[in-house]
Design a protein around this nucleic acid. Sequence first.
RNA 1: GGAGCUAUCGUCUAACGGUUAGGACAGCGCCCUUUCAAGGCGCCAGUACGGGUUCGAGUCCCGUUAGCUCUACCA
Length: 490
Amino acid sequence: MSSSVVTRFAPSPTGMLHIGGVRTALFAWLFAKKHSGKFILRIEDTDLDRSTEENIRIIEEGMRWSGLLWDEGPDPDCPGGWLGEQGPYRQILRMDLYKAKISELLQQGKAYRCRCTKESLEHRRKESDRAGKPFQYNRGLDFGQGCRDRQYDDSAPSSIRFAMPLGGDIILRDAIKGTIQFPSESLDDWIIARWSDPGEIGVPTYNFSVVVDDVAMRVSHVIRGDDHVANTPKQIPLFEALGYPLPIFAHVPMILGKDKHKLSKRHGAASITEFKDLGFLPQAVRLTLAKLSWTPKIDGRVAESAEEEILSDAQLIQSFSLEDVQSSPSVFDIDKLYWINQKLIMNSTNEFLMQALDPFMPPLWLQREKSWKELAVSCTKERSRTLKEMADSLRFCWEAPQVFDEALVAKHLSQSHRSALQRVSTLTDWTAEGLRKGLDQILLDHHMKLKDLAQALRVALTGGTISPPIHETLLLLGQEEIKRRLLRWI
RNA sequence: GGAGCUAUCGUCUAACGGUUAGGACAGCGCCCUUUCAAGGCGCCAGUACGGGUUCGAGUCCCGUUAGCUCUACCA
């Protein structure tokens, strides 16, 4: 039990849920599932100014939609508002724990009160800049100028800094990146608790609370974004100072936009909500994200055909391994998502799609018979990349065309076409079979090709030349609606 | 500026130091076809650069270049 796997996703509620965050969470989730471990969601809201309740809700909803359900974390349905034994899972509610740990460090001389004001630090930073050196508190040019050995008590306002090692290297053994060495001299004594009034301990900073929480929640594998690599050498000595064993670190590479910069709104969709609204399936998002910087190997083999690219969650979980994750970043290509989404839609049951389509459809959709919906879904699912496109391709069912393109009318609705349309409106057997026979007879009588009649009907009925196969299009519209729409052409 | 990371087709990637450098998406062409798709077949396209090590380097080492991350009392 002591060796059981626990991973976590620890976003800060300062904005939307970014697709890059979802990918990081996905890897942590896959790893936990693979090892029958636990996956924790923890809200890192120690930035009081930027964190909001609304953003927490967005994160929870986004995670649920993505299918990344957490074993421990916030849960309004549970007593106290969270699920799990190490709660609460919002850092703002865990201040007592942090402050107790800070007191310990203070007593042991592993942390110290710092009375340097923002102004003083600003000044020293500028001085360093002028000398062409990076500013590091109590290192380099600043060595000896800080409060490290002043033994200040809490009788005056102060922040609290962690006394970092002064020599040697800090070594990070990363499950993805390998061993990385950081010279201690490139780090400095960083702030673990913000400025506070006399007698108090300020709000702890991210790098501090993360360590305390990861230990308290028994996180065995810290799987997080690449952008945290530089934080890790700060955190490692803290684990040691607190007397905690080190978890295994795994830093997953970033997801880039087409211009090789961090993926953002500029590249189109970046938040998980946007992907949802675009009509992508959660499974498609998971699969696409999973295959960035990682290639699943099924039975030791990578995909060798298009079909083999489409994997189930079970296959992803089964083949997931941190060692196989690349250390280089990758560019997110939405075309691949479209393709995977289309494949998954094609593979989906009508039952599933009928329901998945609900949010994209007008109210009239909900009133339709099941058999009608089934027909609508089955004749559009092979020709749509997204749920939204599916919904769009069924628009003609509720929206009669108002304006017609003259060129289309001239090409597809000549007098001879119209006389055939006249016949269509007089058909009486509107079963699938009867309709087929009826159309065939019209084609014979009018010496027409199906192609011509189909396009004439499309233009007359939908205003365009694109629709599901013509028999299905007619069945979806129904006899009465067709008569109504054909009226102006016959 | 400093610290760190990274480098195979446009993109995602595969390749015990030995392959005509493989696959997928995108693009292009042909076939199929009732429009659009789907499907089938095919084409285009890559080891950033320079040095080593080696019988042999995409793969190991060193440098160069480029990109990214971090460099906050943000997370």
